[in-house]
Simulated scan of single mutants.
Amino acid sequence: MTALVLDVPAFLQRLEVARHERSMSWREVATACGVCSSTLSRMITSGAAPNAHATLSLLIWSGTSPADVTRPKETTP
């Protein structure tokens, strides 16, 4: 089985679409998902992947399939 990693830019794009559809601020998204707003801020400003709890909460909130925001992990020889 191929290891997968979260594609943070793709995930952010999905979250942005869901946020705009609901006319919500990022702070409101964080509150609705039960995650710290700083988690979203780190994703937006530095591309940092959120922890497992935040990832799952944001996936559920946005209605995003994990398959849509993951990619195979690059391996080094």
Rank of each mutant, 00 (worst) to 15 (best):
P50F: 09
R71T: 12
A3P: 02
P9K: 12
G47T: 04
W61T: 13
L4H: 13
E74T: 12
G34Y: 11
M24N: 00
M1G: 14
S57W: 01
R14C: 11
R22A: 15
S41G: 00
I44M: 09
T75A: 12
R27F: 05
A52S: 15
M43V: 14
A30G: 00
T75E: 10
I44E: 08
A48H: 10
R27T: 08
A18M: 14
A54L: 06
R14M: 04
K73R: 10
I44Y: 03
D68V: 02
P50A: 02
V35S: 04
V69E: 04
P50W: 05
V5K: 05
S25G: 03
T75Q: 05
T2P: 12
A30M: 09
A67S: 12
A52D: 04
M43G: 15
A32T: 11
S25R: 06
F11V: 08
C36T: 10
C33T: 09
H20T: 05
I60D: 07
W61S: 05
E28R: 13
A52T: 14
E74N: 08
T39N: 02
K73F: 09
S38Y: 13
D7V: 13
V5N: 08
R22Q: 05
S41I: 12
T2C: 06
W26F: 04
S23Q: 10
L40D: 14
C33D: 01
G34I: 07
S25C: 13
I60K: 09
R71M: 10
G34N: 05
P66S: 09
N51V: 06
L6Q: 01
R19S: 11
P9V: 04
H53E: 14
R14S: 07
L59P: 05
G47L: 03
S38G: 00
K73L: 13
D7R: 00
L6W: 04
A54Y: 09
G63E: 12
G34T: 02
L6K: 10
L15D: 01
A48G: 04
D7I: 04
R19T: 11
D68P: 05
V5A: 06
D7C: 02
T2S: 14
T76H: 08
S65I: 07
V29M: 11
L15A: 09
V29C: 07
V29T: 01
L4I: 13
R71Y: 02
V8G: 02
T55W: 03
A67T: 08
T70D: 05
N51C: 11
H53D: 15
